[in-house]
């Protein structure tokens, strides 16, 4: 049988269905990645150590926070409305690899050193108690 003259029970060329599927999947990925409820710019960075909020600072400044957990000191950078854990004494370094936090609700957590950095929107939230 000569190639090209074969009639197949499936479409040879890309179909509209192919295109719709691919575009829909990419659109879903983009919406999931950038959409959601955290459209508002984050206002503040909160740093918890061992469940206590140690720092609640505005994101618009530039500063370096040093906090001490059970393993040692973690360094947190705040700059240009973003925040990150810059160094930590833990072995995994997942919190450092998390990179810059940009959206309200983003969290970088270092479980070994009991340090959590998170971004929130709205007003300052220094609490006088923590329930867990």
């Amino acid at each position: 049988m000569i190639a090209g003259n074969v009639s197949r029970p499936w479409p040879e060329a890309p179909t509209i269905g192919d295109v719709i599927l691919i575009v829909a999947a990419l659109a879903a990925a983009v919406m999931l990645a950038f959409g959601g409820t955290n459209a508002a710019a984050p206002q503040r960075a909160l740093v918890d150590v061992d469940g206590q909020i140690l720092h609640d600072v505005a994101l618009d400044g530039e500063q370096t926070l040093v906090v001490t957990g059970p393993l040692g000191t973690s360094v947190i950078l705040i700059r240009d409305g973003q925040a990150r854990i810059a160094s930590a004494p833990c072995s995994g370094q997942f919190c450092v690899a998390r990179g810059w936090l940009r959206k309200s609700g983003d969290i970088a957590a270092c479980v070994p050193n009991r340090t959590v950095l998170r971004l929130t929107g709205g007003a300052p939230r220094i609490l006088d108690g923590v329930t867990r």
Partner: peptide
Amino acid sequence: LLPRAFSPVGLSVA
């Protein structure tokens, strides 16, 4: 169910 809707490439992506 939709034999004409997807080429092999579309099926593979799905």
